[in-house]
Computed example of a mutant assay.
Amino acid sequence: MIVVYGISEHLNPIKTSLSDAIHSSMLEVLGIPEGKRAHRFIPMDKSDFFYPSDRSEAYTVIEVNMMMGRQRETKKALIKSLFEVIEAKVGIDPTDVEITIKEQPAHCWGFRGMTGDEVQDLRYSVNV
């Protein structure tokens, strides 16, 4: 699951193109299926969104939540791909993008009525 935070006046007009950019990196680097898009956008009032003074109002925070298992190099490749694709497709300078990957053990995920460690039919590999 992806959670994206930004100033509402900047984030709202680019939600679709940003979602497309993020999803293309997830497909390419992690090999997730096309239909596995779970993005949440949290547009915030400027008065509620504090960011570093050397960033612009385009400053965008992206949290990538996923099950543990990906290799260090895979996660680094995802972060680098996100910077590149977001700049190319959405026009946000990498200086204005902050990305964090939050990993949880499979037993801490719940979907389709079971925990992640019980799932036997994922259509993608977590261990890449």
Rank of each mutant, 00 (worst) to 15 (best):
V61E: 07
G110I: 04
Y124C: 02
A38E: 03
I32H: 03
R70C: 05
Y59K: 11
N12H: 09
K76P: 01
M68W: 05
E63Y: 15
K36Q: 11
F111Y: 11
H10L: 07
I79A: 12
V29C: 00
I79R: 05
H23F: 00
F50R: 13
I86F: 05
D48L: 14
T115H: 14
Y51N: 07
Q120N: 09
E34K: 08
C108T: 09
I92C: 01
I14Q: 12
K102V: 14
V128R: 14
V90A: 04
V3K: 10
R40N: 11
R40H: 06
D45C: 08
L18I: 03
Y59M: 11
V4W: 04
D121H: 07
E9H: 11
V29D: 01
S25C: 12
K102F: 14
S53G: 14
K15A: 13
D20R: 02
S53C: 04
V61M: 08
G6S: 07
E103Y: 04
C108R: 14
Y59D: 06
K80A: 13
E28P: 04
F111P: 00
H10N: 14
E34M: 04
E63S: 10
W109G: 00
I92H: 03
I32C: 03
G31L: 04
P43F: 03
V29Q: 00
K75C: 12
H39Q: 09
V97F: 01
I7V: 15
Q104N: 11
H107L: 13
K102G: 07
I14D: 10
S47T: 13
H23W: 04
S47R: 10
G91V: 08
M68L: 10
Y51A: 08
D54P: 03
S19K: 05
V119P: 00
G116K: 01
T74R: 09
F41S: 02
F83L: 06
R55H: 13
E118V: 01
G116R: 00
R72D: 11
V128L: 14
P43G: 12
K89M: 08
N65E: 10
I62Y: 01
